[in-house]
């Protein structure tokens, strides 16, 4: 592939350190205003509980894990993290529109694998992330980022182990990416 063209096609991302400072300030403001950090997987949890509660209310009521999130006065979707996650989506739209990255539906993958493989891996990855985030009390934003920023030992633990495991297994899945 031609290097010149590659450089011209390179998506315009902001300087990562600048992005980091911005993200740090967003996190700091979040702590200042709400007293807690950011999160993302909690919204999906609310969605799961809502769906199960709609489809099979008795079943949701019996489940010891979901029961805790069901109240009579409002839907589990009426939750801080759900609104925040919706904001993440809008923020992504804004930035994508600003930098011209919103294009037709597409799959991003290494040229050496098929679309099917990529989607399969993404699905499995999602499932694992879903299970892991429940055990870990949060995902990379809730536990690793916000947890570590608030000096939580658990947050540091999740961050180190998550990336550490990533490095350990990365070799076996290199075909997916390079």
């Amino acid at each position: 592939m031609n290097q010149e063209i590659d450089i011209q096609d390179r998506p315009k991302y902001i300087n990562p350190y600048f992005g980091g400072v911005l993200l740090g300030l967003v996190l700091l403001i979040t702590f200042y205003i709400t007293g807690r950090g950011l999160g993302a997987s909690g919204a999906v949890k609310s969605a799961v509980v809502t769906t199960v509660d709609k489809v099979a209310p008795d079943h949701a009521e019996q489940n010891t894990y979901m029961k805790a999130f069901i109240t009579d006065d409002h839907s589990p979707m009426f939750n801080w993290l759900v609104f925040e996650s919706f904001g993440i989506f809008i923020g992504g739209l804004l930035s994508g529109a600003l930098f011209g990255r919103i294009k037709k539906l597409r799959i991003e993958k290494s040229p050496s694998i098929t679309n099917k493989t990529r989607l399969f891996a993404a699905g499995i990855g999602g499932i694992l992330f879903g299970i892991g985030s429940q055990f870990g009390r949060g995902c990379s934003s809730g536990a690793a980022l916000s947890g570590t920023a608030s000096s939580s030992f658990g947050g540091l633990l999740v961050m180190l182990l998550m990336f550490g495991t990533g490095y350990l297994v990365a070799y076996f899945f290199r075909k997916l990416w390079i």
Binding site: T34, G35, G42, L81, S133, R137, G138, G142
Partner: peptide
């Protein structure tokens, strides 16, 4: 005053 609940 109870610390705010977090969660991800």
């Amino acid at each position: 005053a109870k610390a705010a609940e977090g969660g991800c």
